[in-house]
Amino acid sequence: MRAAEAAALYRLMTWLSPSFPVGAFSYSSGIEWAVEAGDIADAASLQAWLTSMLTDGGGFCDGVFLAHAQRAASAGDEPALAGIAELASVFTASRERHLETSMQGRAFVEVARAAWNCASLDRLIASCGGAIVYPIAVGIVSAAHTIPLEPVVHAFLHAVVSNWISAGARLVPLGQTECQRLLARLEPAVTATAGRALNASLDNLGSATFRADLAGIRHETQYTRLFRS
């Protein structure tokens, strides 16, 4: 492995590690309401729920936004990047989901800029012109560091799914070994969704996870809550 490849891998593993301080542990993406409502009761129902969120909902859409943002940033197309960032910011189904992705995006950018700053990063951040949601943040930071797009999308979706499983583990609850089995069973869906996202246009964006969207909305008024979304 060349030095540049090793550096890219090191940074990607760091940025999308559970230890990177974006606050992902405090969000459940509506899973908390789904558990209370009885939609999720065990590992099998959690797997079915997460598969839908990944392949037909926010997971796929975030992968598309990341891919297009990274390409625009890498090409120096600031008007296109601004448009993609704006579209991604409004492409959320609930107030809490917007809070989740915008807060994680801001934290990702701030920490990356503080610890891993580079010449083009400030310019790319400024070109977005407003709130930078999580997939856009990952796209522009990885572009600034010239990290290849394909592993970024795969690592991003792995990180998203891992956090969903972590939330489910605390809520159902599930043991650590069962969580790893679940992550292993979701590997084909993550791989396939990453491939679709890499080849999708912005016209292919869309979600059909109505129950998950309702879960995110209803979580806002849930009486007892451990998570912020």
Rank of each mutant, 00 (worst) to 15 (best):
A4D: 15
E5T: 13
L9H: 14
Y10E: 13
R11N: 13
R11H: 09
W15Y: 13
W15R: 10
L16P: 02
S19Y: 11
P21Y: 04
P21F: 02
G23H: 04
A24S: 14
F25D: 14
Y27E: 09
Y27G: 00
G30L: 05
W33D: 08
W33I: 05
W33E: 13
V35F: 02
I40Y: 08
A44W: 06
S45L: 06
S45K: 01
L46H: 08
T51A: 08
T51P: 06
T51G: 15
S52K: 05
S52D: 10
S52W: 07
L54H: 04
T55F: 01
D56F: 11
G58C: 06
D62M: 07
V64A: 03
A67L: 07
H68W: 03
H68S: 03
Q70F: 02
Q70C: 04
A73R: 00
A75H: 03
G76S: 07
A80N: 03
A80I: 00
L81K: 02
A82Y: 07
G83T: 01
I84E: 09
E86L: 14
E86M: 14
L87S: 10
L87K: 14
A88E: 09
V90F: 12
F91S: 05
T92D: 00
A93Y: 09
L99M: 12
S102C: 05
F108T: 11
V109F: 13
E110K: 15
V111S: 12
A112K: 07
N117C: 10
A119D: 11
A119H: 11
S120Q: 09
R123G: 09
I125K: 06
A126P: 07
C128R: 01
C128H: 05
A131D: 14
A131R: 11
I132Q: 07
P135K: 01
P135I: 00
I136H: 00
V138C: 03
G139H: 04
V141G: 02
A144N: 10
L149D: 02
L149F: 09
L149T: 00
P151C: 05
P151F: 01
V152F: 01
A155F: 03
A159I: 12
S162D: 15
N163M: 15
W164L: 03
I165G: 02
G168M: 04
P173W: 01
P173F: 02
L174W: 01
T177A: 12
R181C: 13
R181P: 04
R181D: 13
R181S: 06
L183G: 07
R185Q: 15
L186I: 11
P188L: 08
V190M: 07
T191W: 11
A194W: 02
G195M: 01
R196P: 05
L198M: 12
A200I: 09
D203R: 10
D203A: 15
N204S: 14
N204C: 13
G206T: 00
G206W: 02
A208T: 10
T209M: 02
R211I: 03
R211K: 12
R211P: 00
H219N: 11
H219F: 09
H219W: 11
E220N: 10
Q222V: 10
Y223M: 14
T224Q: 13
T224W: 15
L226Y: 10
R228N: 14
